[in-house]
Computed example of a mutant assay.
Amino acid sequence: MAEKVVLHYLNGRGRMESIRWLLAVAEVEFDEVFLETREQYEKLLSDGALMFQQVPMVEIDGMKLIQTKAILNYIAEKYNLDGKDIKDRAMVNMYSEGVMDLMEMIMLLIISPDPKPKLDNIESKAKKRYLPVFEKALSGPIYLVGGKLSRADVQLLECTLMLEEKFPGILADFPNVKSFQGRMTRIPAISEFLQPGSKRKQQPDEKYKKAIMEVFQIKLP
């Protein structure tokens, strides 16, 4: 029997949340070790568990994986969520990279001393650069690539939900994306992950911000 997957990160979204989403969709059970103190982080460093001295870190199949994209790629390939061939995988990667660029901007809001200008920039880029791409891609197909569920779809759903938390109604001009969102949330594994009590994390709050500052020794203005 394979050992359970273990995630090492803070008790919040950040770069680990997309990994949680993908594992949930693949119906893979996982445990979490939450970093709450600098000492816990330094213990991982001293143990040599973090190749580039950073998290997220995922213990899976006897490995200690770091680098978010590498982790997502491994899970997607292992659970057939990366497209049917090399061309599909290229498309999946392009869509995923775009989504991650947008989500990265949202993630950084928690450590911004003045989030208002950044929020305006995120909303503008979402409407003008990112959402039009997905609106066009979903003008006919059920999924983004090759007619089958991929990690790009999972990450797009995660991203649209994050956007709606910040900008209610942002999908009003993107009906294909909104319909896609509705279809995705009806997938049983996703529906379960969206229920209260799941391992999905809530929006970052002051407690999460404090943990970031403590664990990574970040000095905020």
Rank of each mutant, 00 (worst) to 15 (best):
residue 3 E to T: 11
residue 3 E to H: 14
residue 7 L to K: 01
residue 7 L to M: 09
residue 8 H to D: 06
residue 8 H to L: 02
residue 8 H to Q: 05
residue 10 L to H: 07
residue 10 L to S: 06
residue 10 L to W: 12
residue 11 N to L: 13
residue 11 N to F: 10
residue 13 R to W: 06
residue 14 G to T: 03
residue 15 R to A: 05
residue 16 M to K: 03
residue 21 W to E: 04
residue 21 W to T: 05
residue 25 V to P: 08
residue 26 A to L: 10
residue 26 A to E: 11
residue 26 A to G: 12
residue 29 E to V: 07
residue 31 D to C: 01
residue 32 E to K: 04
residue 34 F to L: 04
residue 34 F to V: 08
residue 36 E to D: 11
residue 36 E to H: 07
residue 37 T to P: 00
residue 38 R to L: 00
residue 39 E to F: 00
residue 39 E to S: 10
residue 40 Q to V: 00
residue 41 Y to H: 09
residue 45 L to P: 11
residue 46 S to Y: 02
residue 48 G to V: 05
residue 51 M to T: 15
residue 52 F to Y: 09
residue 56 P to N: 02
residue 56 P to V: 02
residue 57 M to A: 09
residue 57 M to Q: 06
residue 57 M to D: 00
residue 60 I to R: 00
residue 62 G to L: 06
residue 64 K to D: 02
residue 64 K to H: 11
residue 65 L to H: 05
residue 65 L to M: 14
residue 68 T to H: 09
residue 69 K to F: 12
residue 69 K to A: 15
residue 70 A to T: 13
residue 71 I to F: 01
residue 73 N to P: 00
residue 75 I to R: 06
residue 77 E to R: 15
residue 87 K to A: 14
residue 89 R to E: 05
residue 89 R to V: 01
residue 90 A to L: 14
residue 97 E to N: 13
residue 103 M to Q: 12
residue 103 M to T: 08
residue 105 M to Y: 03
residue 106 I to G: 01
residue 109 L to C: 08
residue 110 I to Q: 12
residue 111 I to C: 13
residue 114 D to T: 13
residue 114 D to H: 09
residue 115 P to T: 03
residue 115 P to R: 00
residue 116 K to M: 12
residue 117 P to Y: 08
residue 117 P to D: 10
residue 117 P to V: 07
residue 119 L to P: 00
residue 119 L to D: 01
residue 120 D to T: 14
residue 121 N to C: 14
residue 121 N to S: 15
residue 122 I to D: 05
residue 122 I to T: 08
residue 124 S to R: 15
residue 124 S to H: 14
residue 124 S to K: 15
residue 128 K to D: 13
residue 131 L to W: 08
residue 132 P to V: 14
residue 134 F to R: 05
residue 134 F to Q: 08
residue 135 E to P: 13
residue 135 E to R: 08
residue 135 E to A: 05
residue 138 L to H: 02
residue 138 L to D: 04
residue 138 L to E: 02
residue 139 S to A: 12
residue 140 G to S: 15
residue 140 G to Q: 14
residue 141 P to W: 01
residue 142 I to G: 01
residue 142 I to N: 06
residue 144 L to R: 03
residue 144 L to C: 06
residue 145 V to W: 00
residue 146 G to W: 03
residue 153 D to H: 10
residue 154 V to Y: 10
residue 155 Q to F: 13
residue 157 L to N: 10
residue 159 C to D: 07
residue 161 L to W: 14
residue 163 L to C: 05
residue 163 L to S: 07
residue 164 E to Q: 15
residue 170 I to P: 03
residue 172 A to W: 06
residue 172 A to V: 10
residue 174 F to E: 07
residue 178 K to T: 11
residue 180 F to M: 07
residue 181 Q to G: 11
residue 185 T to Y: 00
residue 186 R to I: 07
residue 189 A to T: 10
residue 190 I to R: 03
residue 190 I to A: 05
residue 191 S to K: 14
residue 194 L to T: 07
residue 194 L to G: 09
residue 198 S to T: 09
residue 201 K to A: 09
residue 201 K to V: 08
residue 202 Q to N: 15
residue 204 P to S: 14
residue 207 K to D: 13
residue 208 Y to V: 15
residue 209 K to H: 09
residue 211 A to V: 15
residue 211 A to Y: 06
residue 211 A to N: 12
residue 214 E to K: 11
residue 214 E to D: 13
residue 217 Q to I: 04
residue 218 I to Y: 09
residue 218 I to E: 10
residue 219 K to T: 15
residue 219 K to F: 11
residue 221 P to D: 07
